[in-house]
Write a protein that binds this DNA or RNA. Structure first.
Lengths: 200, 200
DNA sequence: ACGCGGTACGATGTTAACAATTAACAGATG
DNA sequence: CATCTGTTAATTGTTAACATCGTACCGCGT
């Protein structure tokens, strides 16, 4: 069921994003196309594409003719504000689309939930963070929130850099399970309530 | 003072964006790298980069191995919601940063205002829309809102596709002038009030 | 010592050729 | 007749070579 990215560009993008989230690149440092290209054994093209993409996702800052810089995480003040906006967007999309969730799209959400569970069991914080976001994204997609997805991703990417969660991984899973259950019943209000309890 | 984009990629990106905003590409149609590359007299590389960028800005939808599709404008319901989020973001950033606007960054805002005025005088709606957004962006940058800029751009790009304004171009300019004036005095509250009156 | 300018190097920007993938279509097959 | 499969044309994905830009360094003149 899990779909492996096929193009080199996607693989490179995902790998670099993972490294960024794991803090393997120092904030403020410059990333070089050649270095990463040789590390992955590919040409500069896909790496370049990945840089553009990750710049737009908010992880990197692009400077023409000079390269990309690893961005710093948002400050606590902005972080709080971003959280609020995120809540608003998810609320809006779910309220509007929960009633029309199909069996098919619900399946995708369920897969995302399973993957989150696996990550929680494994206990790797950075992976959990990623799966956490992916779950929320699947919910938005299921509710037909494509129009809002881009902006939402921007906000989330900034958040991921400072992902902090209670140590209780079991609860992380439980909170998301409690989003899934009402969603499966097309119960918008309860779904939103669970989401608002989870995002904080 | 006006800064011409230097790289081919930027020029191509801007040109395609303009065409999209002017409705010269039909929503739902596919865009081909070769066709646009030959039209601009450049190779596929920069066009490809532009496609990635514009996909992330929300104008195009990217399908691996198949190309990019011109996206449809947001429906009225989403449009209303997006407007509200935009207001919130601009309010947040200005409230936080209006007091630390430098002479230098204010100059950029002023240039943006002049360009908007020129567009209003000329009376070309699509150009006005672009300059309108650029003005707001310059305000955000001046207030140090880099962290929020990506998400904000996403939202605006969706809006631009359905840009509707009163026919009174002079008033469009006036409204923005009234944002600029308090900003120059580092008056956050009045600036925000003017912004909220303008975004609707 | 300090400032200035030229030069060399390393990086990104761009290009064109080649590889891989997709979708449509024709023909075989049941 | 419907369906499956192999072919083909068109398009995107990837690569490596070349062009251009920015920076650091070094020598020169003051």
């Amino acid at each position: 069921m899990s779909i492996q990215p096929k193009t080199v560009r996607e693989q490179v993008t995902n790998q670099i994003r993972d490294d960024l989230l794991s803090g393997r690149f120092e904030a403020g440092s410059m990333l070089r196309e050649i270095e990463l290209a040789s590390r992955f054994g590919v040409s500069r093209g896909p790496v370049r594409d990945a840089f553009i993409q990750l710049s737009h996702e908010g992880y990197l800052a692009y400077y023409a003719n000079r390269g990309v810089m690893v961005r710093h995480p948002p400050n606590p003040e902005d972080r709080k504000f971003i959280t609020a906006i995120r809540q608003d967007i998810e609320t809006h999309v779910v309220m509007k689309g929960a009633s029309q969730v199909t069996e098919e799209s619900l399946k995708v959400v369920e897969v995302a939930l399973d993957r989150l569970k696996a990550a929680c069991d494994a206990g790797k914080a950075t992976v959990i963070a990623l799966r956490d976001v992916e779950f929320h994204e699947s919910v938005l997609v299921a509710c037909g929130g494509d129009d809002m997805l881009g902006a939402w991703r921007q906000l989330c990417s900034r958040m991921l850099l400072t992902y902090t969660r209670h140590e209780n991984y079991a609860q992380t899973y439980r909170e998301h399970f409690e989003i899934f259950t009402p969603l499966a019943d097309n119960d918008a209000k309860s779904t939103v309530a669970a989401i608002r309890a989870n995002i904080r």
